[in-house]
Design a protein around this nucleic acid. Structure first.
Length: 107
DNA sequence: CACCTGACATAAT
DNA sequence: AATTATGCCAGGT
């Protein structure tokens, strides 16, 4: 597999800090990484999901829609993300997280 | 609600 | 080495 860039490593590390039952957004992640660009974050996640080690399912869009998962925005793969979140106690409404009270801001 | 632009990192050319 | 294209976005028009 590809060698993860330092930036990507930071993204993964940040992800592992998210407590179970919580989610974060690309923007929040970007700020935490002092990057400011949610796009760079999303790209890092999609390029190297690195298996179950990185809970990329805990990352949603700023408007709370689930966004994608491992490059998919629909289909079986995406559905898995949906299920994983509910499994952690996060209510999902359609393709969105039902409430912001589950957001983790790395405080 | 659809489209465009902005800002950042990486891969490809 | 430089430029171009692209991405699980965000915010504004």
């Amino acid at each position: 597999m590809r060698t993860p860039t330092p930036f990507e490593s930071r993204v993964y590390e940040a992800l592992t800090q998210i407590p179970r039952g919580r989610v974060t957004t690309y923007g929040l992640l970007a700020v935490y990484l002092d990057c400011g660009s949610a796009r760079a974050v999303g790209q890092a996640l999609r390029r190297n999901p690195n298996g179950p080690r990185v809970p990329c399912h805990r990352v949603v869009r700023a408007d709370l829609s689930l966004g994608g998962y491992a490059g998919a925005t629909a289909g079986a793969t995406w559905r898995r993300k949906h299920r994983l979140l509910e499994q952690e106690g996060i209510p999902i409404e359609g393709n969105c997280v039902a409430s912001r009270e589950y957001l983790y801001d790395f405080s």
